[in-house]
Write a protein that binds this DNA or RNA. Structure first.
Lengths: 219, 219
DNA sequence: CGACAGCTTATTGTATACAAATAGGCAAGG
DNA sequence: CCTTGCCTATTTGTATACAATAAGCTGTCG
């Protein structure tokens, strides 16, 4: 995407993920255009993309609202993500190149460093974690799978999950990555897929714990 | 989508599916706008949608081309579709309502009628087949799953598969639908999912047979 | 003959004006 | 007080003009 359009997408998406635009908020193309200092045309492009990301829903009269995520939606997203990431791992196991394996090792080493200190470096963790999963997706070599998965990852809730990871969960995540690397090194699709399924499902439960704790605290 | 935008989408999509625009063809917004008798704005919307449907790919300089489908792509699409449709069936098994079950029975009865004559009524078959699968997707009750699956169904190759079904395959498809209905009636997720997996995978092999036969004939 | 620079043309990106549709408020009537 | 219809204001859809960028072409030079 080109300058204005991409900018609008990034800005609006950022505002939604940061919670500045709470679920249910109506989005006016005009207002967003002013806020992003571009015209309505690129804003419309951005809104269409966000709609297909399921970050925005549209009323029957085509008005845009920030999507709200029910508990079922969240469970649903994690369930699909675990299926698709497992499939990616399965395919990657037989196709991964030595260079990609090495890159996985490198990112996981850096993840290890990011979480080893007394205070974990979450942004760094997220960065290398994303890179790690992207390499697997690339190794899977399926355009379609990649296209479907990018619609599921980095959605608001998924994105915030790691923010709430405790030290224990970060360490576990790191160890699961190690095991994934082992499965890839042996080119064992079933092993890789099962580790990945567990990896995502554990993330879901970690999210649930953090979220319900948060909700209970709010009462 | 509103009138012009939807119209452009339907027309362009139709041309791609019908093969009037062969894979690799460059699409000019201007030319399509003239052809659809609308302005470039709704054409641009349509192209964006088609791109996310993977019917169109864009060069790094943002020019649009009709996507070409390698054998691997096709296998990939069927593989993902079988996974996701199986998941839909799994979910639907425990959620389907009596009214939806009845609707499935009705559509499959009509499928039976469409293929019973000496010459099968393929458009009718396709119509009720689509309705059948849509009911299952609705019963699954997952916005995200629906959103992902609609990107995989009715892609060029998938769409043409049924055109090449012989009588034997049409009958089998009809019988598999019967079995799916039975699994839904018993609310058995594992059963429903496994039938669905087989249903889609058989469709893939039917496609392969028809396609390789066609290719061999062309030599 | 090939390669490259510069120009020309084709194509997409963005802004803006106007048209169409819709929601929300307000007044009149039951 | 609620309902209903209309009117106005807001919002989105479409068309068009112009800007920016990339592709293709041509003529020149090595």
């Amino acid at each position: 995407m080109s300058r204005a359009s991409e900018h609008a997408y990034t800005v609006i998406r950022g505002m939604i993920l940061a919670g500045e635009l709470p679920p249910g908020t109506q989005l006016s193309e005009e207002a967003l255009a002013v806020h992003c200092a571009v015209s309505r045309t690129p804003v419309r492009d951005a809104l269409r993309r966000l709609e297909s990301d399921l970050l925005i829903r549209r009323s029957e009269s085509q008005r845009s609202f920030v999507a709200d995520w029910s508990d079922d939606d969240i469970e649903d997203a994690f369930e699909l993500r675990s299926m698709l990431e497992a499939q990616a791992a399965r395919r990657a196991a037989t196709r991964i190149t030595p260079a990609q394996l090495e890159a996985l090792r490198r990112h996981n080493r850096l993840i290890g460093e990011a979480i080893s200190g007394s205070k974990a470096d979450i942004p760094n963790f997220l960065d290398h974690n994303r890179a790690f999963h992207e390499i697997i997706l690339a190794a899977a070599g399926s355009t379609r799978l990649a296209s479907l998965l990018t619609r599921l990852i980095e959605q608001p809730v998924v994105w915030r999950t790691a923010q709430n990871y405790d030290h224990e969960n970060l360490q576990r995540s790191h160890r699961e990555h190690e095991e994934l690397i082992a499965a890839f090194a042996r080119h064992d699709p079933a092993w890789a897929a099962s580790i990945m399924t567990g990896h995502i499902r554990r993330a879901y439960h970690a999210y649930l714990d953090a979220y319900t704790a948060q909700r209970t605290a709010a009462e």
